[in-house]
Simulated scan of single mutants.
Amino acid sequence: MEESLVSASTIVWLAFAVGGVFGFVANRTNFCTMGAVSDIVNMGDWNRMRMWALAIATAILGTAALQWLGLFDASKSIYTGNRLTWFSHLLGGLCFGIGMTLASGCGSKTLIRIGGGNLKSIVVFVFLAIGAYMTMRGLFGVWRVRHLDNIATELPHGQDLPAFLGAATGMASGTALLATALAVGGGLLLWSLARREAWRSDVILGGVVVGVTVVAGWYVSAHIGYVAEHPETLEEAFIATNSGRAESLTFVAPVAYTLELLLLWSDTSRVVTFGIASVLGVIAGSAAYAVVSRGFRIESFRDAGDLVRHMAGGLLMGFGGVTALGCTIGQGITGLSTLALGSILTTLAIIVGSAITMKIQYWLMMRGA
């Protein structure tokens, strides 16, 4: 019996819907990784960090459930291969953390702010896309491959934590997956909800819905869009993904592909993909909330220095995100949902880079006061 082939437009519209939900809820709850780090560094407030942890926990548990049910195979994503490019994860994460602090938000926050009318974020979007494209295929690309990605550790198994547990104990892969997901995801869930103030509606809503959108992204690209044998190539295929693998939400390379599509619209080989549709969906969802809540307002730069900082931040995020294979969402939630070691390294490096930059900014501000 011939396998039915889902249309690319179906995957694209579903990705747009997933992105729309993410954008609407993230704007509604002020979900922001850089904001979470800033709240801790500057005010000692952990609520938005708990929201982020809740999103990670939801994504881990939901993704593990998909794998247990046979609806998703994490080995078919970019995250769990046996080649650990640890230096790229650390350097890229640091650069991304610095960049998102200079640019007043990560890739997802940039899209959310565009939906809310922020002109500064349009500039960040363009420079993030340029930096990402230069790092994928342009000026920085060859240098990255030759001098950064070559620094790697070859593992005898996948780099996901269940693979390490299985190799160390001889545990079956399914059992190792459940044990690790329950330990890590359950632990983060308990920590995120351990304080009474974390039970606010915005923390619960933002954490749960953002995590669920990542799981939904995996389901759309890796199950609905999966074809074991494409009728034209006779090979395994994931419909409408740029990487040709299973994808979920991430906002660095897809931003570059979005700008590329806008610049080369007349080139019929350039089409809307899962990643591009999710980017546009986040903007649309955020704009919808901004209009409904009457929060849409035009915001621009204070001065030339503000412009330069945002431009530099966008470039650093583009370079860092491609080098580290993701951003605060692409690695910090989507990658972590696969329990990949590289995602853990990147996420920690992003937090460190952002926190250090905030401290330096505060020192410079006090020095100039």
Results as ranks from 00 to 15, higher is better:
106 C>W: 14
55 A>C: 11
82 N>A: 15
78 I>Y: 06
80 T>W: 00
181 A>C: 12
39 D>W: 02
152 A>L: 11
318 G>V: 05
228 A>T: 02
117 G>M: 13
347 T>W: 11
305 G>E: 10
268 T>E: 11
66 L>I: 01
94 L>W: 07
128 L>E: 00
330 G>D: 05
89 H>M: 10
333 I>Q: 04
87 F>G: 01
48 R>H: 05
232 E>Q: 15
310 H>W: 08
101 T>L: 11
75 S>T: 13
286 S>K: 01
68 W>A: 08
180 T>R: 11
360 I>G: 00
194 A>D: 07
141 G>D: 01
335 G>K: 11
284 A>L: 12
365 M>A: 15
235 E>G: 13
53 A>N: 03
241 T>V: 07
33 T>I: 13
205 L>C: 10
158 G>A: 09
350 I>K: 04
116 G>A: 09
32 C>R: 03
197 E>R: 11
188 L>Y: 09
31 F>R: 05
337 S>T: 10
85 T>G: 03
243 S>E: 04
170 G>R: 10
345 L>I: 10
249 L>W: 09
272 V>L: 15
210 V>Y: 09
48 R>Y: 06
272 V>E: 13
157 H>P: 00
11 I>R: 13
298 I>F: 05
174 G>D: 02
54 L>N: 10
61 L>K: 15
293 S>F: 09
15 A>F: 07
283 I>H: 06
99 G>S: 03
205 L>Q: 04
68 W>E: 09
165 L>K: 08
132 A>E: 05
361 Q>Y: 09
139 L>I: 00
284 A>I: 14
164 F>W: 12
364 L>M: 13
318 G>Q: 00
187 G>I: 10
280 L>F: 07
19 G>Q: 12
200 R>I: 14
295 G>F: 12
41 V>C: 00
118 N>R: 14
53 A>K: 15
